[in-house]
């Protein structure tokens, strides 16, 4: 299904008919100018303070595309994506368990969520890392056997710590999503002879996504920032790399600025992705989707099929 963008333009093109259009002098808001001036003044002094400070700004562009920085960046991205995947899959599983009629499975899910939401993720990371004190070996029978400390690499610690913790949060988001789907949908699907699994996968989850996607986008952005905690267990993420370079090159603060800039770029990119994902899952929920910024831009810049003299 494609959406006809031009349909939404309809009312704007029609000039007001009937009585004479109103040409009144708008109310003045002098307070707005005063508060704007104050805000700009404050902003200016902050910028001035940073410019005056003993900061070697040149170090930021110098290291911006440094190999190690890029590697740290990729590690951060990897960690974000894989942890979120663990979180989403685990979250859906936990949400379904939580909603199941079997009291054992729903209690297990409840306990999991209670535990992982109730403890700080940094503490969880340290626990995973140091579990070797309790288990000297990890022994999966004939498949795998090794010392815990060898097995539990910084990457695995980070993935387990962040992913399992995220699953607890995603479970609540997914549960709210599943509950938001009208019971009539499940009934209609069952009445057509669809199985529980098919009903969930084809009917319920796609509709639940409309409720699940927006908070999940926030979770991704949060996750991206939370990955900076794993520097504590020795994983070479963006923040850890920035710290290392900063200490060695004597430009600690500069490297923090550099890391912040990269985090900002990544979160901005994710936000755009989130916008389009939300749009995708909104299909069918509104009569016609509003145009995307790109479509709006095209419509405004390219004068195609637009009557003359109409301003958007």
């Amino acid at each position: 299904m494609t959406v006809d963008v031009n349909k939404t333009d309809g009312p704007a093109d029609t000039p007001p008919a009937g009585p004479e259009a109103i040409k009144a002098i708008p109310v003045r808001h002098p307070g707005r100018y005063v508060s704007a001036a104050i805000a700009l003044g404050l902003l200016g002094s902050i910028v001035y303070a940073f410019a005056q400070g003993n900061i070697n700004w040149g170090a930021v562009p110098e290291y911006f595309f440094n190999d190690r920085v890029i590697e740290g960046l990729l590690n951060t991205l990897l960690l974000t994506v894989v942890s979120m995947l663990i979180g989403i899959v685990g979250g859906i599983l936990l949400a379904v368990m939580r909603l199941s009629k079997n009291p054992v499975t729903s209690s297990i899910a409840w306990f999991y969520i209670w535990f992982f939401r109730g403890t700080p993720v940094l503490v969880q990371l340290f626990v995973w890392f140091n579990l070797g004190i309790v288990f000297t070996y990890i022994n999966l029978g004939p498949i795998y056997k090794d010392y815990w400390s060898v097995f539990m690499t910084p990457l695995l610690t980070a993935l387990l710590g962040l992913g399992l913790n995220e699953a607890a949060y995603m479970a609540e988001i997914c549960r709210a999503g599943l509950l938001s789907v009208d019971e009539g949908q499940t009934e209609a699907s069952h009445a057509l002879g669809m199985s529980h699994a098919k009903t969930l996968r084809r009917i319920v989850i796609p509709q639940a996504m409309r409720v699940i996607v927006p908070p999940t986008g926030n979770e991704v952005i949060n996750m991206l920032k939370t990955t900076s905690l794993v520097s504590a267990v020795g994983y070479m993420d963006l923040f850890k790399v920035a710290q290392d370079i900063g200490q060695r090159a004597g430009s600690v603060v500069e490297m923090f600025f550099l890391a912040s800039a990269w985090y900002l770029i990544l979160t901005s990119v994710f936000s755009v992705g989130q916008y389009y994902l939300e749009r995708y899952y909104a299909k069918g929920s509104t009569r016609s989707l509003p145009p995307t910024p790109v479509q709006r831009f095209k419509a405004a810049v390219l004068p195609a099929r637009r009557p003359k003299g109409v301003s958007a």
Partner: peptide, 21 residues
Amino acid sequence: ALKRRDIGMVFQRFNLFPHMT
């Protein structure tokens, strides 16, 4: 589910799948 295939049902509130045409 197998038996339900042979019985069609129409609901008061339609219950169409809103995410599908």
